[in-house]
Design a protein around this nucleic acid. Structure first.
Lengths: 185, 185
DNA sequence: GACCACATGTAACAAGTTACATGATTGA
DNA sequence: TCAATCATGTAACTTGTTACATGTGGTC
């Protein structure tokens, strides 16, 4: 999956690993997150497979060498193939708080409530953060040459941001319901 | 994480790998899923670490040997420790459909809409399935001796099921919004 | 006789996480 | 001079997925 996110961004313009990490943090991280270590190793792999090409920027003996990746035709084909493939099944959800709730029936309710209220504050913060974001904010990171092409993507970016907001709002409503339920036991 | 789900169920009563797989499929799978291969290997590991004990059921030379695991005192302590630990940060969400949407700005809108409508049908089915479930349904799988103890857990199981319903309802609303948005481009 | 549910495992691989490691540039 | 940001990588480990492999017992 990370593979296609990297190809997707590189389809807009050539970028370095560091820039890709920043882009992901500012845009895809609410539905797909990656550590820099995984990004760098995956870029190398895609380079080896011929889906990307790379070159080092700066003088040959400069200490600070940025490696900039460019998508190849093979990479573009792979990305478009993947985008066209239907998702066969619903992906498995993994949600860390839920197993704790599931097995919390024998815990002291005060401790459970405290934890859920802490969670509530964190989710509220996240929602506030999303509400402050503009989906166009990514345009600032992308080169001006690529912006005309990329402008058409803005409503799709906005759709994923909307998902983030709905998710956090749903989570808050569920926490409120669950807190009330436990408080009433 | 799987470790604690297994300990959580074994805290109710001794169970085999197969039974644990079934329990997970019927209860935790909407927030944590595992393949049988991972369940069997994890049980072995927990046995080696002394958090579980196991014995083979049936005659010594029987072909069909069920291995039944029992939680130890150390296992119970580990489970309770974990339940008491606050979740430091919000876990990273990983949602496979979103990266596709994010990079679909250059795709043909007809194909994107078709895929989203397919997704909509699948999420509707899932929601229908959750709505048909009773949170007590797990009681049927659990031994009658353990039921009195376990009855207190039912509202907590119900809370996780409620999460599943809210999640699917949110997803449907988001899909409707996104389908309308794309259809209007 | 075919199929399904029961029942348990290993092996190979892919993906994700944490820790280690280094060094430059810029601004307060 | 201290901290932050820029910038890139490797190593060790854990977790998760897919495929392989085997055999029983009951029922249609």
């Amino acid at each position: 999956m990370l593979k296609y996110i990297l190809l997707g961004f590189l389809n807009y313009q050539p970028l370095s690993g560091y820039e890709l990490k920043r882009l992901m943090d500012e845009s895809t991280s609410h539905f797909w997150h990656a550590y820099h270590s995984q990004i760098y190793t995956t870029l190398r792999k895609l380079d080896d497979e011929g889906l990307l090409e790379s070159e080092e920027e700066g003088e040959s003996d400069a200490k600070l060498q940025r490696r900039v990746y460019t998508i190849t035709e093979a990479g573009r084909r792979d990305l478009l193939d993947w985008l066209g493939q239907p998702l066969a099944e619903l992906p498995q959800v993994k949600e860390e708080l839920l197993p704790r709730v599931f097995f919390s029936g024998q815990r002291e309710t005060g401790a459970v409530l405290e934890e859920l209220r802490r969670q509530r504050r964190m989710h509220q913060e996240k929602l506030d953060y999303y509400n402050a974001l503009q989906p166009q904010h990514l345009m600032g990171i992308i080169d001006s040459e690529a912006q005309a092409q990329v402008a058409r993507e803005v409503p799709f970016w906005a759709a994923t941001l909307s998902y983030g907001k709905r998710y956090e709002a749903m989570y808050l409503a569920w926490l409120d319901e669950t807190i009330d339920m436990i408080a009433g036991l």
